[in-house]
Amino acid sequence: MPFSRALRKRHSVLPGFDLALGFTLLYLSFIVLVPLSAAFLKTFTMSWPAFWDAVTSERVVASYRLTFGASLGAAFVNACFGLVVCWVLVRYDFPGRRLVDALVDLPFALPTAVAGIALTALYSGNGWIGRWLPFKVSFTPAGVWVALTFIGLPFVVRTLQPVLEDLQKEVEEAAAILGATRLQTFSRVILPILTPALLTGFALAFARALGEYGSVIFIAGNLPLISEITPLLIITKLEQYDYTGATAIAVVMLVAAFVLLLAINALQAWTRARQGR
C-alpha cells in the first residue's frame, strides 16, 4: 500500500502495520467520523438565519446558561475538594484508605441513570439529605449542580494523583530549610507544581459535565427556561421531529466539545512538560 508507505517515518521489521492502521481508520470512520460529519452536513441544509435562530432562541440560551454555569460550578467544587481528597489519599494513612481510594472511581463505573435516581431520592424534600436542607435541591438548578458534581468527582483526583505521588520530597525539605512555613511551602512550591494537572482535571470534569444527560434529567425537574439542560433540549426537539433544530443545537455542543478537547490536550502537554517527561 503506497499510502501507508508515505505515512511511515521509519522502517520497521515488524509486520501488520498496513492491516492494523487500515482497520483502525476504517473502523473509526464508520463508527465515529462519518456519523459525526452527518451532524455538520445536516446543518449546511439550513440557511444561516434559520441556524442562528435555532441556536439562540430564548429557551436554548437559558439552557446554555444552566448547562455551562452548573458545569463550571461542579468542576470548581471538584477541583477544590478533589485536591483535598487526593492529598489525603496520597499523603496520609487512615483506616479504610484503600477502600476509599477504590471507591473514588464509582462515578465512572455506576450507570448515570442509577446515579440520577439515587441522587434525586436523597435530595428530594423527604430524602435522607434533602430533609435537612433549608432549600429545595431536587427539581431545581441546584439539583443539576449536585448531579454534575457526582459525575465529575474522579477526574481531578485521578489526574492529580500521579503528579502528587511523583512529587520529590526534597523540594519541600529545601523550602523548609530556607525558612518557609508549611503554608508557604504549599502555596509557593507544591501548588505551582500541581497547577497544570489541577487545571487538566478541572477541564476534564467540565467537559464531561457539559454533555451529561442521564444523571441530570431525573433530578433537574426539567422546567423550560429554569432547569432544562441543553442535551435535553436536543431530545425534546427530536421527539417533535424537528431534526434540523436538534442538529443545530448538537453542532453548538460539538464545537464546544472540540474546543475543550484541544484545551485539554494542551493542558496535558503542559503537565508532562512540568513533570519533565
Binding site: L28, P35, A38, G211, Y213, I234
Partner: peptide
C-alpha cells in the same frame, strides 16, 4: 480522534445515528 467520543455528549452520539 480515538479520544473524541469521550468529549461528545451521549445525546449527540445518539442523534448522529438517527441522522444517518
Amino acid at each position: 480522534l480515538i479520544d473524541l467520543p469521550f468529549s461528545v455528549s451521549p445525546v449527540v452520539a445518539g442523534l448522529v445515528f438517527v441522522l444517518v
